[in-house]
Design a protein around this nucleic acid. Structure first.
Length: 495
RNA sequence: GGUCCUGUGGCCGAGUGGUUAGGCAGAGCUCUGCAAAAGCUUGUACAGCGGUUCGAAUCCGCUCGGGACCUCCA
């Protein structure tokens, strides 16, 4: 089996993952700014790191997974006129800022739960770390890497680079290029260099979220919270930092600068970025107005959807591509995923009931070897920078054998006890524990189903075919289908 | 304009220079009262043009198309 490799944005290549402390992993992922509902694009990046988190734990690491909640400091614009996103929504909706935060945090948690994401180990909020942020600003000023200007404090890019650092290395920016392209933004006059970014912003009197500081009333800059919280909970240097591609610049670039400036250490070993979800080839984003809310997807209420799609269908759909590729979102693609996902959950139901039976059938080395290979290939795929698409392909190989055994087309003993057991346990492990998929109950409870199934058998035995058809129609009406096999009769979720 | 990514069969989507990715849809077969499910078989492919190579979807160049970041965005 291959060792785990991840694509490190910092070095632009896949690297073998080696934690700083053997057996332990510190993982930080940028969470949402809770001023609005999370949309589907956001979900993709949380999904990527949910799978990573699950897999790391599965392979025996003790993982501390920190994912923040941004509840202040994220500006609508960048200049002096920039409004805090939370504050803006609070004004619009005539609510306390913390009501906004609570409402959308609740929604966020609900949606994540629907998608079967594991909760992080720590979920810190920016407002809960005001002291740390103010201390960080003080410290940066003392080090001469930040300066106060008209009640705001800015990070000094030139000083930082003069000290031997390389602002722009993560996103591949060249300082002069950035300077040439700088636009006329409000508040630039306060800065020594147009590229300097705010670590503390002076608040106008009417600004509803503000805190006292040595520089007057204000609020922290967006990038600072992640630096403070990751350092506090994971240390000066930690293993993995994740987020969407669109956060590379400026957010993550600024995090590196702040971290390095504060502690003298490179804050992160492996930077991982998930790619964008697209709609008709274009990035899904709130500002473009082409984003889908999870709730709209689950109900099918979005105008461009022609049916509802369940959370697990969507999760599966996203896992069919590799996280560093863009993924295009469409009805046709989702329908295909729904069918494929239901085939797999039918397999999941079946595999849990399969028992090994010794028989005269000799071991079929070819089949045995194909299963063993698929299991190894699954791990190799995940280890190859979380290639869930290739991993899922292995699941279908395993599914084929599960179905064959179930349909009496293959005797368990043809695989030998060991491979049979591996088939059973790994299918469940891969599907539920690593990919984080689960069976969704689509219809009635089992007692009703079993009663109807008994009726079906009776009608079938009596050759009452019109009644048989009625029972079939009942099942179909409940998202199920009858499996009328030679040796037994059972049901499955309709695909 | 700068930096970077990308163009795979009807659709989605993997692909480390030579060996079937996979899924969905389509066709045929087995099974079936008829179906469904399941299994088996199967067609259509690497944007275009050059180059490197014994051999390229994969490397290089050019052309055309799509996209991302450079401003808030996962």
């Amino acid at each position: 089996m291959q060792p785990l490799k991840v694509y490190n944005t910092l070095t632009r290549q896949k690297e073998i993952f080696e934690p700083i402390i053997p057996g332990h992993v510190g993982l930080y992922v940028c969470g949402p700014t809770v001023y609005n509902y999370v949309h589907l694009g956001n979900i993709r990046s949380f999904l990527t790191f949910d799978v990573l988190y699950r897999y790391l734990m599965q392979t025996g690491y003790k993982v501390r997974y920190v994912r923040n909640i941004t509840d202040v400091g994220h500006l609508v614009g960048d200049g002096e006129e920039g409004e805090d996103k939370i504050g803006k929504m609070a004004k619009l909706e005539k609510l306390e800022p913390m009501e906004i935060v609570q409402r959308y945090t609740n929604d966020f948690h609900k949606v994540l739960d629907q998608f079967n994401f594991l909760p992080p180990s720590i979920e810190p909020s920016a407002t809960g770390h005001m002291v740390e942020q103010i201390e960080a600003v003080k410290s940066l000023i003392e080090k001469g890497l930040a300066y106060e200007s008209n009640g705001s404090v800015y990070f000094d890019i030139n000083k930082y680079n003069e000290a031997g650092n390389d602002y722009g290395k993560l996103s591949g920016r060249i300082l002069e290029d950035l300077l040439n392209e700088t636009r006329e933004l409000d508040g630039q006059a306060e800065k020594r260099n147009p590229l300097d970014f705010a670590i503390w912003k002076k608040a106008a009197p009417e600004h509803i979220m503000q805190w006292p500081s040595p520089w007057g009333m204000g609020f922290p800059g967006w990038h600072l919270e992640c630096t403070c919280m990751s350092t506090k909970y994971l240390g000066k240097q930690f293993d993995i930092h994740g987020g969407g591609m669109d956060l590379k610049f400026p957010h993550h670039e600024c995090e590196i600068a702040q971290g390095k400036a504060l502690t003298g250490e490179e804050p992160v070993r492996y930077w991982m970025h998930s790619n964008m979800l697209t709609v008709n080839g274009q990035k899904m984003s709130k500002s473009l107005g082409n984003s889908f809310l999870p709730a709209e997807l689950f109900s099918g209420s979005h105008p461009s959807l022609d049916q509802a799609y369940s959370p697990m269908t969507v999760r599966f759909f996203m896992l069919q591509s590799q996280y560093r590729s863009t993924l295009d979102f469409s009805n046709d693609a989702l329908k295909g995923s729904q069918k494929a996902y239901r085939r797999l959950i039918n397999g999941l139901r079946i595999v849990k009931t399969l028992e090994f039976e010794a028989s005269e059938t000799p071991v079929d080395e070819k089949k045995k070897s194909e299963i063993d290979k698929a299991i190894t290939a699954f791990y190799d795929a995940i280890n190859d920078d979380l290639n869930t698409a290739v991993a899922i392909a292995q699941l279908f190989t395993l599914l084929k054998y599960i179905n064959m055994i179930y349909m009496n087309q293959l005797a368990p003993s043809a695989l030998g006890q060991e491979t049979f057991d591996a088939l059973k346990s790994n299918f469940v492990l891969f599907f539920e524990d690593i990919l984080g998929l689960k069976e969704e109950k689509l219809g009635n409870d089992e007692s009703v189903i079993n009663g109807m199934l008994t009726l079906y058998k009776e009608y079938k035995a009596n050759q009452q075919y019109d009644k048989v058809d009625q029972v079939r129609a009942y099942f179909k009406g409940n998202n199920m289908t009858i499996k009328d096999m030679k040796h037994r009769i059972d049901w499955a979720w309709e695909e």
